[in-house]
């Protein structure tokens, strides 16, 4: 049995997950980051993307694969816990595929319209990434 650490996924609307994880893989601004128990203190900004984690629910020893579409956020890893803050995190059955497709199209338009404005470009990119993450978690892309 692998080690596990307390893992919390928090959004402003609710605590999405609160339990133990053996492994958490999130999309950082510099690429994917995998966190195992006893990680050195670490704090990073997250890009919108697919968050994966091997988690244990309650007393059961069996691990479950958690896969969520996360919007922008932050991950803090301490030796004894991992916390992820995100604006939104959606599980597969919570994703509205039509909405995600519409958001993707709107964001791509926005990106085209942004032109040389780097700030607007970045904003559009965030939306595109989040829409793609939702589609990918939902199993369509």
């Amino acid at each position: 049995m692998a080690n596990a650490i307390p893992f919390q996924l928090i959004t402003p609307l609710s605590v999405k997950f609160d339990g133990e994880a053996e492994l958490v893989i999130a999309v950082g601004t510099e690429g994917e980051v995998g966190i195992l128990p006893s990680h050195a203190p670490y704090l990073t900004a997250l890009r919108p993307g697919v968050l994966r984690a091997n988690v244990r629910d309650g007393s059961a020893d069996a691990t479950r694969r958690l896969e969520l579409a996360c919007s922008e956020g932050f991950m803090q890893a301490l030796p004894d816990k991992v916390t992820i803050l995100a604006d939104a995190a959606l599980e597969r059955d919570e994703i509205d595929i039509a909405q995600a497709r519409a958001d993707l199209a709107a964001a791509q338009e926005e990106q085209k319209a942004a032109g040389g404005d780097l700030y607007a470009q970045r904003r559009a990119l965030v939306k595109i990434d989040y829409a793609n993450a939702r589609l990918s978690v939902a199993g369509v892309s």
């Binding site: 950082g28 601004t29 510099e30 980051v33 050195a40 203190p41 670490y42 704090l43 990073t44």
Partner: peptide
Amino acid sequence: GAVEFEPTPEFV
């Protein structure tokens, strides 16, 4: 230096 930041503390 107890905490590591990626990419930099200022960025985060």
